[in-house]
Amino acid sequence: MKCPECGKECRKGFIEAKEIGSITQFFTSVIWYPEDEKDKWIRNNTVHLSLHGEGWYCDECMKVFAAFNEK
């Protein structure tokens, strides 16, 4: 996919949100990781993302395209 802002080729990967913490404290972590690390227990190439970003929804294909800033 080409970047909607700069037109360069983007790497395909996954965005995942998880709640992390202990019984007394929880926080949400959002990460991106490459496609080849999907089924690995330890991911070496993760990018930690800000919890807020811009998103675009396509009514035709019912997909969301999002842009998050790196933390």
Rank of each mutant, 00 (worst) to 15 (best):
M1D: 13
M1E: 05
M1G: 15
K2R: 11
K2L: 11
K2G: 04
C3R: 07
C3L: 06
P4E: 04
P4K: 05
P4I: 14
E5F: 14
C6N: 04
C6Q: 02
C6S: 02
G7L: 05
G7M: 06
K8Q: 06
E9M: 07
C10R: 08
C10Y: 07
R11H: 12
K12M: 09
G13T: 04
F14M: 06
I15H: 02
A17V: 15
A17R: 14
E19I: 15
E19S: 14
I20H: 09
I23V: 11
T24R: 00
T24K: 00
Q25C: 06
F26K: 11
F26W: 10
F27P: 00
T28G: 04
T28D: 00
S29K: 15
S29L: 13
V30Q: 02
V30I: 15
W32C: 07
W32P: 01
Y33H: 15
Y33V: 07
Y33A: 09
Y33F: 15
P34V: 11
E35H: 08
D36G: 04
E37V: 15
E37Q: 14
E37S: 06
K38R: 14
K38H: 12
D39F: 15
K40E: 14
K40R: 13
W41M: 11
W41E: 13
W41N: 13
I42M: 09
I42G: 02
N44P: 00
N44M: 10
N45L: 03
N45M: 04
N45G: 11
N45P: 01
T46H: 02
V47F: 08
V47G: 04
S50D: 14
S50I: 08
S50L: 09
L51E: 02
H52P: 01
G53K: 03
G53W: 09
E54P: 00
G55K: 07
W56Y: 12
W56L: 12
Y57D: 03
C58Q: 07
D59F: 12
D59V: 07
E60V: 15
E60N: 13
E60G: 08
E60F: 15
E60P: 00
C61L: 09
M62Q: 09
M62D: 07
A66M: 08
A66C: 10
A66D: 03
A66I: 08
N69W: 07
E70N: 08
K71E: 06
K71G: 02
K71Y: 07
